[in-house]
């Protein structure tokens, strides 16, 4: 539990209370040593003194009110800040749950990459098959047209493509291992 700090302002100094006590004695004696009966002039002086005191206290009250307004304004400002902090609290995520979520995301991404790369290699294989078939069909067409030499050349290209493809496949498997 926090202890409340004592008010250390000048206005709370004990010495001021002592001075007030001593002044009341001083003023009391002043009244006794005066003429005894208060004349009109002393009444006027007393009225003026009281009026001055009233003016002083009015100023003091105004000062305190201004201070109060200022403090109230600050209070509202703080309350608004506190509210904003409170509403943002739900959005906060603990570091552990955050890393778990991130891990999940990463795994999903990796799975997606693997899926895409396998699809890509299938498409690649398919394309090469197509290319071989096309070359063989062209060779057959040249054979039927009586141009045997050109057909041989196309068949050669198709088998070379196959050899190259087989070699590439072999290298990929080797690298993966």
């Amino acid at each position: 539990m926090k202890l409340k700090k004592p008010d250390r302002s000048v206005s709370n100094m004990d010495v001021l209370k002592d001075i007030r006590g001593l002044l009341s004695v001083t003023r009391g004696r002043e009244d006794v040593t005066a003429d005894g009966v208060r004349g009109e002039s002393s009444l006027a002086a007393e009225t003026a003194r009281l009026e001055a005191q009233i003016r002083y206290y009015q100023e003091l009250v105004q000062k305190q009110q201004a201070e109060l307004h200022r403090v109230e304004g600050e209070k509202e400002e703080f309350a608004a800040k506190l509210k904003a902090l409170g509403s943002g609290k739900d959005k906060l995520i603990s570091p552990a749950s955050k890393s778990a979520a991130l891990g999940e995301d990463a795994a999903q991404l990796e799975a997606k990459i693997a899926e895409l790369s396998s699809a890509l290699s299938q498409i690649d294989g398919l394309l090469k098959l197509r290319a071989q078939e096309l070359l063989k069909r062209i060779a057959r067409l040249f054979q039927e047209a009586g141009q045997g030499e050109v057909a041989i050349e196309f068949r050669k290209a198709a088998s070379e493509l196959e050899v190259v493809e087989n070699f590439a496949h072999f290298l990929r498997v080797l690298l993966e291992q």
Binding site: V10, S11, L16, R20, L60
Partner: peptide, 16 residues
């Protein structure tokens, strides 16, 4: 501090 002491003097001694 000067302001505080001055205010306290004013409060304590009044019209003096």
């Amino acid at each position: 501090l000067s302001e505080e002491v001055s205010d306290s003097i004013q409060q304590t001694f009044g019209n003096l």
